[in-house]
């Protein structure tokens, strides 16, 4: 069952109430039209339904979300997938700061660029392996304190003079992996990470995700994988293990 909600002029609390009600009454897909900055869409919701958003949803889209698929036809704001548990968010435009903060499961596919502090403190546990795929560029502090999961940064269609990632990438990282398409200059990396070549297993992983990325956004797969990836991993699981002395 598909339900359409017109979000124009609705306060987020009303809109989210309507969404929860629609899901509770058996909607399998919700189309939200005219979203205009309403926060918390999909926040804390469990299930396996689908929400399609036309317009621009507000911050904390899919925060703490558990299982749904959300597709945003335009841009998203800050905190997409904040502490998300499971599910998928597909954003056709850009996403803002702290995308995927503390994310512990599920997938984010962002076609465009993302802001600062993306993927901070993502973590993985057993079968929960969060993945963020970013089509464009990322701001500073990408993957800071990252403890698990994967960030795939593609850097497609970079305008001349624009760099694929900001400074302090992977600072304090102690788990997980960042794949960057192309080169990244050493001065941009936090001192807790090192650059290695992807293994053949990694290549497979990248190929799978890029193929899905390409299918979501209608991109040309071969064009994306034509450029080799670099892999960033932390030096160790205990970056600050030797810093302290018991008093």
């Amino acid at each position: 069952m598909m339900i359409t909600i017109d979000a124009s002029g609705l306060h987020y609390r009303k809109l989210n109430e309507q969404i929860r009600k629609a899901l509770a009454t058996g909607a399998t897909e919700i189309l939200i039209k005219n979203a205009n900055g309403q926060r918390y869409i999909g926040t804390g919701i469990s299930g396996n339904q689908r929400i399609v958003i036309e317009g621009t949803p507000g911050s904390d889209l899919a925060a703490f979300m558990d299982g749904l698929e959300i597709e945003v036809m335009g841009n998203a704001q800050d905190g997409v997938g904040n502490t998300m548990n499971a599910g998928r968010v597909i954003v056709h435009g850009n996403a803002g700061d702290v995308t995927g903060y503390g994310m512990r499961g599920g997938e984010l596919f962002i076609r465009g660029d993302v802001g600062y502090r993306v993927g901070i403190h993502m973590k993985a546990y057993k079968e929960k392996q969060p993945v963020i795929v970013i089509g464009g560029r990322a701001g500073a502090f990408l993957g800071e304190y990252m403890a698990g999961g994967v960030i795939l940064l593609l850097g497609l269609d970079l305008e001349p003079g624009r760099e694929i990632v900001g400074n302090f990438c992977g600072t304090g990282m102690h788990g997980g992996t960042i794949f960057i398409r192309g080169e990244v200059e050493p001065y941009k990396l936090g001192k807790e990470v090192r650059v290695v070549e992807p293994t053949s297993e990694d290549e497979q992983f990248i190929a799978d995700y890029v193929a899905r990325f390409a299918s979501y956004f209608g991109d040309d797969l071969s064009r994306i994988v034509a450029k080799p990836f670099k892999k960033l991993i932390p030096f160790n699981k205990r970056p600050y293990g030797n810093l302290y002395t018991p008093y």
Binding site: R104, K123, E144, G148, G172, H174, K237, G241
Partner: peptide, 12 residues
């Protein structure tokens, strides 16, 4: 905590 065995749990 939902983190791997033996890894540091760092709260920024």
């Amino acid at each position: 905590r939902m983190i791997p065995l033996g890894s540091d749990a760092i709260s920024p």
